[in-house]
Computed example of a mutant assay.
Amino acid sequence: MTTPRDLLIVAMDTVSGHSVDRGDLSLALAGAEAIDLLGARAIGLDGERIVPGPPLPLADRMLDRAASALTREPPYEPVGEWLWRRGRGLPGAYLDTLEADGEAVRERHRRWMVFHTSELALVDSSARRRATHRLRSDEPVLATLATAIGIHDPSTPDSPAVTRVDDVATATVLTAVDDALGELAVERQRRAERRDAATADNVRRGY
């Protein structure tokens, strides 16, 4: 299993009455992929730029796709740009993978709150148990990514323990994810303010 798959599983498994924003999850999944690629030595970082390593066979097909999507000519891509580019459509791709691997099934009348359009339900599997254990054990990478997008294990206190990532490259990716989530939140606020202003203008005009 990989960090992106674990992140999606815990999102589906622990969210209750809360919808994880699709954009937030997209960015976090792309960051999780980058961290796993670092762990596999498929990439390195030069400052904040992703430097591809030699092509390596990876055990996960989604990570293979991520590696094949790397910018392999200098100047290399900054982590932040990778998150936005790679994250586009990524949650749907991982949901498809869970379904194809038999770790999630479609239910006609049940909807997970990860996506309002999703009708996938997790099955009882070793992958699900592993992801849940990883979150509950407060593993730093998964805990940080989950907290960043509003996922909290209901079996833990409301205030999760502060986790620390000692690896500099991993910490750089996590910081980039946090920055990108902040940018997305600002853009959402701007859109909401524009909608409110347009609504108020229409009211003044009698519409």
Rank of each mutant, 00 (worst) to 15 (best):
1 M>S: 11
4 P>T: 14
4 P>L: 08
5 R>E: 07
6 D>H: 04
7 L>A: 02
8 L>H: 10
10 V>G: 10
13 D>R: 15
14 T>I: 07
15 V>R: 10
19 S>K: 11
19 S>H: 09
24 D>A: 05
26 S>Q: 08
27 L>V: 10
27 L>N: 04
30 A>P: 07
33 E>I: 05
36 D>T: 14
39 G>D: 07
46 D>H: 03
47 G>W: 02
48 E>A: 13
50 I>M: 06
50 I>P: 05
50 I>L: 14
54 P>K: 03
55 P>S: 06
58 L>F: 09
59 A>V: 05
60 D>E: 15
63 L>H: 01
67 A>V: 05
77 E>G: 02
80 G>H: 02
84 W>A: 02
89 G>C: 05
90 L>V: 15
98 L>V: 06
104 A>T: 08
106 R>Q: 09
107 E>G: 02
109 H>N: 14
113 M>P: 12
117 T>R: 06
119 E>L: 06
120 L>I: 01
122 L>P: 11
125 S>T: 11
125 S>R: 09
128 R>F: 13
128 R>A: 15
129 R>F: 11
132 T>K: 14
134 R>T: 15
134 R>D: 12
135 L>K: 11
136 R>G: 15
140 P>A: 06
142 L>T: 15
148 A>H: 00
153 D>T: 09
155 S>C: 07
156 T>I: 02
158 D>N: 14
159 S>F: 03
159 S>A: 05
165 V>Q: 08
170 T>L: 06
178 D>F: 00
178 D>C: 08
178 D>W: 01
182 G>Q: 08
187 E>D: 09
193 E>R: 15
194 R>W: 07
195 R>W: 04
199 T>D: 07
202 N>D: 02
203 V>A: 00
203 V>W: 00
205 R>D: 14
